[in-house]
Every structure is written in C-alpha cells, then in structure tokens.
Design a protein around this nucleic acid. Structure first.
Lengths: 211, 211
DNA sequence: CCGTTAAAGGAACTGCAGTTCCGATAAGCT
DNA sequence: AGCTTATCGGAACTGCAGTTCCTTTAACGG
C-alpha cells in the first residue's frame, strides 16, 4: 500500500504561508468583519476553494494565524531589576498595540475569539504562554526579597498588560509610553503591598499568611 | 404648510424599544457576527425594511443599543471610604461581566466598536461617562488626605476595571469576586504610592512634585 | 374630526459569500 | 523514473443578507 500519509511538504507549506500572510494583510485593511476569504485567496494567488477547504471560516483562518504568531514571539528581557523587566514588558506590549499592523492584527484576533470557541481557545493558550514566559522575572524578585513570598507571578504580569488592552478595546484612550510605564509601576506597587499573594493551600505550604 | 416635523411619538418609540430589546436578545444568542437584521425584525414583530432603513447595519443598531444602555446605568456608591467605594465598583463590573446576558451584550458591543468608527465613538463616550461618574470618590479621598494630591481620578477608576475586562476579552481567565477585590486593592495601593499623579502643568498649578 | 405626510410594512429582486463538482498538479514512496 | 493519491484550482451553482419599490398605517397640526 502506497501513500495514505499526510503531505506537509513544499507546496502545502508554501500555500499556508502565502495565505496567512495575505490574511494578515486583509485583516489590517478591512478588519475582522470585512474579511472575505475569496479576497484572501486572490491576494495569496491561491484558489479560493483551497482556502475554504483548509480553513473553512474566517474565525478558523484567524485561529491558525494566531498559532503562527505564537511561534515568533520575542524573548523576555532579564535585567535583574523587577521594575526594569516589567517596564520593558509594558513598553513591548505598548509598541505592539500602537503599531498599525500589529495593533490591527491583535484587535482582529481578539474579536475573532469572541465569535468562535476554537479561536478563543487558541487565543487563551497564546496569552497563557506569553504570561508564563514573563512570570520568572517576578519569581526572581520574590527570591531576591523584593516582593512578598507567595506572590502570584502570572497575576502581576496580567496586571501590567491589562490597562493597555483596556484602552485598546474598551475606553479608547491613547496608549503612550507614559501609560506603559505607569502600568508597570502600578503592578510593582500593588505586588509590594502584597495584593497578589496567593491563598495558602496544601500545595503551597511555603506561603506566609497575610499581614 | 402642515407637517414637516419629525414624529417621535407613540409608534416610532414603540418600534425602537421593540427592536432594541430584540437586538439584545439576538446578540446574546448568536453574538455580534451571527446577527441577522431580518431575524431581529422578526423577533420585534416589525418589518425588516424598517430595521434596515432606521439602523442600516449591525454596527449602527448596536451603537443605538449602547446609547440606550447608557441611560440606565446604576448610581455609584458613596461609603466615605476609598477602598469600599472602589471594591463596590469592581464588584459591580464583575457581576455585570459574569452575568450571561449582560456579559454577552458588553462583549458584543465592544466587538462592534472595533468594526465601526461611529460605534467606537459611542462606546468611548459610554465609558467616559461611567468613569466620570465614579471619579469623585477618588477626588474625595485626595481631599481627605488618603491619596497624594494631583492623583488622576479617572486613571484610578480605569485601573479598577482594566483587569476584569482583560480577563473577559484577552486572557479568558475566570472573573470571580476575589479578582474584583484584588483589582480594587491594587488600584488603591498604586494610587497611594503616587503612581497616578498627573504631571505638573500650567492648568494644574496645585499639583505637588513627585518624591 | 380630517387632511397631510412621516414612518412602517410586504414582496419581489439582486449581489455576492460560501458550496459543489470535477479535472489538473505535484508530493511522497518504491 | 513511474505510480499513486493528497492537495490544489477553475468555473458554475446556490442561498440568503441586504436592497428596491410601492402600498398601507397612523402621528401630528388645525
């Protein structure tokens, strides 16, 4: 028996790359709601049947685009100072959201996630990975004694990003560098005050009680 | 010459109310992307021509729904304690976002805003009003000496909501009461630390310099 | 009350996103 | 190189969201 195996080789990969590139371009230009798969196919110089067959819906295409974006995320900084690291993270997020192409892409991806469960799943994994990548700088700060023990590292990282995404999606206020710096400083101030300490559980016996 | 005036009376108002109610129901059931204006018309027992004529697009309808929602916002609490007030605010937002109907509505409205400039305008006004409504409790805390002078009240209120919306739209983490309380406590801790003090400007001569 | 006309309603029409069908191309194996 | 078949591509088709056109209803002014 010959064949029967999947074929990730040359053509298939080339088509996927071209389509994802074209999908990004189209998303930036028309937004999530104005996305036409036939238009994406035309840009990618690919048959529209192919796009419909492999990705099916706009949300499905965006979900794949997201897994592609996840693979090329930047490494975190490690300056040895909590505030420096968090400021670097905040400014990275700020620059990403303000960038015309990247910002539009993130908006589109977040919108797509609210319309399709599988895209939502991909989005949440994406952010779980990113948060997990930056969490160590908080843990190191705890070890250095800069923060109270038991501080929830992921929660601190989330606190840095939250004000920026809030402005992008909800309030519409400008997202400048000062906003980013304030977000980082606020997260440090709250963490120092012990706001992000986790509850004492059997699996975390080393956590000290709150004052 | 008789007539020529607009007619906001009986029928028109009744149609608007029925359509907005139906639009809310449909949004909760199918989400923003799955919204069909003909379906809304059927639910409202109104001709679909009417819906298309008066609102035109899904985004336009959502924008009108938003101005309707803005008129029935709850008044803020005033306990005389900053942390109490902010916790009340955070829990109000938390309950709203977790509520199946309200949560879905807010998600849909935010999504619609990313697709249409006029809806975005309406959304930003909506939040500007809400933030302005809660800002006084921060100003009062400044007057009582609980917070440094020059603290940006709106920024503190935004800081309370941001982590909740971040979870709703971006990370997908659960939004429980503990999250709400933490958001309020973090905002207070950062404000106490002077993170939200505004820059000194000619229009704000009373602001003290940062330490 | 009654006339005027703003606004609603019904039904047929249209354009285009999404589907179906089948022939063409090239990846992978021997 | 040659065979098999996964995958791609073109073109015609279909369903339905959104439009058009004209008729009917009921606010508002006198």
């Amino acid at each position: 028996m010959v064949g029967g195996a999947i074929r990730p080789g040359g053509r298939t990969a080339r088509v996927r790359a071209a389509v994802l590139q074209a999908a990004g371009d189209a998303l930036v230009e028309h937004g999530f709601d104005g996305l036409d798969l036939a238009d994406v196919a035309r840009r990618a110089e690919v048959g529209k049947t192919t796009v419909y067959r492999r990705w099916g819906t706009v949300a499905g295409l965006v979900a794949d685009l997201l897994t592609d974006m996840a693979e090329q995320s930047l490494p975190r900084t490690d300056t040895g100072s909590l505030i420096e690291d968090l400021r670097a993270n905040a400014r990275l997020v700020q620059r990403t959201l303000v960038d015309p192409r990247q910002g539009a892409l993130f908006r589109a991806v977040i919108v797509a996630a609210t319309c399709d469960p599988r895209t939502a799943e991909a989005l949440h994994r994406f952010y779980a990975v990113r948060i997990g990548e930056w969490a160590p700088c908080v843990d190191q700060a705890v070890e250095r004694g800069e923060l109270p023990s038991g501080t929830d590292a992921a929660e601190v990282i989330r606190a840095v990003s939250a004000p920026l995404y809030y402005r992008l999606l909800v309030s519409g206020d400008p997202i400048d560098e000062a906003t980013a710096d304030r977000a980082a400083e606020a997260a440090v101030a709250a963490a120092r005050a012990g706001i992000y300490r986790m509850a004492i559980t059997p699996s975390n016996p080393d956590v000290l009680p709150r004052t």
